[in-house]
Write a protein that binds this DNA or RNA. Sequence first.
DNA 1: TTAATGTATGAATAGATATTCATACGTACA
DNA 2: TGTACGTATGAATATCTATTCATACATTAA
Lengths: 121, 121
Amino acid sequence: MQNINELPKCDCNVIHHDVIEKVSAEMPVAEHLYDLAELFKSLSDQTRLKILFALTKSEMCVCDISALLDMSQSAISHQLRVLRNVRLVRYHKVGKIVYYALDDDHVNELFKQGLDHVEHQ
Amino acid sequence: MQNINELPKCDCNVIHHDVIEKVSAEMPVAEHLYDLAELFKSLSDQTRLKILFALTKSEMCVCDISALLDMSQSAISHQLRVLRNVRLVRYHKVGKIVYYALDDDHVNELFKQGLDHVEHQ
DNA sequence: TTAATGTATGAATAGATATTCATACGTACA
DNA sequence: TGTACGTATGAATATCTATTCATACATTAA
């Protein structure tokens, strides 16, 4: 007996069962898909991209970033939290100043591939 | 004479002028930043990630994808449009069936770097 | 031509998000 | 201790987005 919630939502006839089974078996686990979407989501905003680009050049304090992008300290701080959550940036405090830096090299490679794609259109 | 709209929004004192000038000079142009954000935005949704993952394994028609993800044909079609807009996928028609495929190899590399990042936490 | 089917798309809606505003926290210094 | 200042954060809001629904378009076959 099939639950109402388990009714297939595909409203067309399946064409290639073999392809679907093959692909289905190789689909990444849900947790990885979720994390990957979160990572790319953090890269999908121009403000955060600018912050990350800046940090590829030099570590910077929040005030520096705020001045560089001509945006409020609050807006920058909120976005830095997003970048912290996906572990793209790390920070260390010197007195009351907080310096942010890239957390690993993946950002550089993601930018490289991304720019390579958008520039070849 | 400074326009009201040109007042700096940074409400703190600049700490490191030299860093800001250096980084500012190397910031990518606005158009590239915009395109890059659009590209990553297209990768920031689990449905689109699943579609792209599937297409790394095999080209598929819309109905196949709809069945694979157990989602409506309309939802899939809307998302495929997003992926077309950033030129991540291409398609060809055979009769009334439309087959989608990856448009280039950047997706594979972006996935690789992205997964590498999320799996090392 | 008519019916059936695969796909695309505009409108509507519920949910997500970026920024602002006000304010709190933490540190340095008088 | 009190003040100043760099940073963080909750609430509010305007904007954006993913899906659904209805429907149109395109192709094939009867």
